[in-house]
């Protein structure tokens, strides 16, 4: 190896340090800038009326976004109800029964593929499955789409969390004469419950901001989500899309910002809260 002058080595090192600093400031600066913009444009429109009255076509007074917020809440909770039981079961299978078998490997690979799948394709799939066959856009179709996005994430998190439970715990439970089912549910899953809750909450927060799969499943409506199973249902992310890309009016843009602020707050609060809970438990 030819010797390199110390000066260049040190200079290169300083350049690396500088670049690293620059990169982290880009990342954090970008985040700060986005949040600042959302706050700046979003806070002026926030009011009690904004949060409690339904959306209306442009020009009508007293418009809010309450129906979209309620729609998002319903769809997200519905998706959680649909996705969590099979996802937990699947995660238990991978961690407790399947382990390194060929079948478990295939299923794990499928789950990875599903996780990496562009969410708009899930929208296409649910459209073909539920909307094309019934001829109706509905909030329920949107719920199913969100559930499909949640499912692989929770399944893999469950597996990871269960694998972190030490084997001695399993063995002692079985040695006490418990059945495999009881040992899994009341010992293994129980000791991993914080991790499981975190995984579920984080994926809930993530799908609550998903837009693409709702564009042609739940669509959008200016009404309260009354016909959840048979009518188009409003949701916050789709409202933002509609109000900002399809509307030239300043006031609608402002409402879009307001909705974005509510969503961002919701998601950040869940994220920070889970971190806090999980963190506290570790000590």
């Amino acid at each position: 190896m030819t010797p390199r002058p110390l000066f260049f080595r040190k200079a290169g090192n300083q350049l690396l340090n500088l670049f690293a600093l620059l990169s982290i400031s880009t990342a954090l600066g970008g985040m700060g800038w986005i949040l600042y913009t959302v706050l700046q444009h979003g806070t002026p429109v926030l009011s009690w009326d904004f949060l409690t009255s339904p959306s209306k076509p442009y020009g009508e007074p007293g418009a809010g976004v309450a129906n979209a917020l309620l729609g998002t809440l319903l769809m997200t909770l519905g998706a959680t109800l649909l996705a969590v039981p099979p996802a937990l079961a699947g995660g238990i299978y991978l961690a407790e029964f399947g382990k390194n078998s060929k079948l478990a490997d295939t299923l794990r690979f499928c789950a990875n593929v599903l996780m990496g799948l562009p969410s708009i394709l899930v929208g296409l799939f649910v459209y073909a499955l539920l909307v094309a066959t019934t001829g109706q856009f509905s909030g329920f179709a949107g719920t199913v789409a969100l559930a499909i996005i949640m499912f692989p994430v929770i399944m893999r998190t469950t597996e990871d969390m269960l694998l972190m439970v030490p084997d001695t715990l399993r063995e002692s439970a079985l040695a006490l004469g418990m059945t495999r089912m009881r040992a899994t549910l009341s010992i293994v899953a129980r000791s991993a419950r914080n991790g499981l809750a975190t995984g579920i909450l984080l994926s809930l927060a993530r799908v609550s901001g998903e837009t693409a799969p709702l564009l042609f499943t739940a669509l959008f409506a200016d009404t309260w989500p009354g016909g959840f199973f048979s009518e188009p249902t409003a949701s916050a992310p789709v409202l933002i899309t509609e109000y900002t890309t399809n509307s030239p009016f300043e006031s609608m843009h402002a409402m879009g910002w307001g909705t974005a602020l509510v969503m961002a707050l919701f998601i950040l609060i869940i994220n920070i809260a889970t971190r806090f809970i999980f963190h506290e438990n570790k000590h």
Partner: peptide
Amino acid sequence: QCVDLLAAIPSVIYGMWGLFV
């Protein structure tokens, strides 16, 4: 944690920021 939070922001907000800023 800040970098992780960056990943949690919904893409529609990124889009909006892109469009207006």
